[in-house]
Design a protein around this nucleic acid. Structure first.
Lengths: 157, 157
DNA sequence: GTGAATGCAAAACCTTTGCAACTGG
DNA sequence: CCAGTTGCAAAGGTTTTGCATTCAC
């Protein structure tokens, strides 16, 4: 298992370089959205970003903010939290487990917890929080689709 | 840290008992929705459940399916995946981390990964999956709100 | 100059709500 | 009986889309 690296941003590479590296253009809107996110290191929604950016680029539209956020995410400059705008799904498995969503076939698989492990073994959760729910999701290609993708890549080379 | 137990369903307790235990009624719709979920142990959306149940209870409406799914979830008979129907949020922290969502104040906090730990240390992920993203979210009360809630409970006793 | 990006408005989508009618215990 | 549930239709909120206009390179 390998996690694709979205995080390898050298301090030297500017946002512009990242954007240009993908053959994209650095526009005033993209810069403003990026600055709005970096200025306050919180977790704003698209609408909150929109309101912040309005001050600097009054003509900007909400659709453009969504656009810019998607572009920045694709370039690895920003992470999207709660991107699950798909429908909620319901699961009769009541044991503690995570879910794997295949981006190719759309399948959802249960991922069991290894014996004797608990979530706070690996995350630095504050001692005094009261946790009521937790949700762990992985996205990528399931074994079947990963194999199919590998076959295609090999052929095309 | 304690995880509230949603999983302690004894084999002896029927769905009816669970529903009745909460002072609620077991209706034909609730039973049909429950059966549709237990019949195929997959992860259907509300609309998919709706389509399955239509065959048995033709008069059922989608709103009722949503209703039943919520009730069953509240009773601990079913788990909801992807319940994050809040807006997507955007995060400038590119290091690997989880998020904590406070259900009281709405705040979002970054939860860092403990040093030298990796997600597959605790979940039994298949070897041959290609993971592109993963998202870990905890929900509950942040330290500040947990303290406030505890104070209120103590007083009212 | 030219394709990429924007702005606008409208559409799409999932989920919730209000309310009259119905029903399980 | 009667509070809890349902069904319907309409509203709500977030995100996407289509297209003419503008702009970065």
């Amino acid at each position: 298992m390998k996690l694709r690296d979205h995080h390898s941003i050298e301090a030297s590479a500017s946002p512009d370089d990242h954007i240009h590296g993908r053959g994209l253009r650095m526009t005033g809107q993209r810069r403003a959205v990026y600055d709005a996110l970096m200025g306050k290191r919180d977790h704003p929604t698209a609408v909150e970003v929109f309101m912040r950016v309005k001050g600097k680029v009054p003509s900007i539209s909400l659709a453009t903010v969504y656009n810019c956020l998607e572009t920045l995410t694709d370039c690895g400059l920003v992470k999207t939290v709660n991107h699950d705008r798909e429908s909620a799904r319901y699961c009769p498995n009541l044991a503690e487990h995570a879910h794997f969503f295949c981006e190719s076939c759309g399948g959802v698989t249960d991922i069991p917890l290894r014996a004797k492990r608990r979530a706070h073994d690996i995350w630095e959760l504050p001692e005094n929080v009261a946790i009521s729910h937790h949700e762990i999701s992985f996205r990528g290609l399931c074994p079947k689709c990963a194999k199919a993708a590998a076959r295609k890549t090999t052929k095309s080379k």
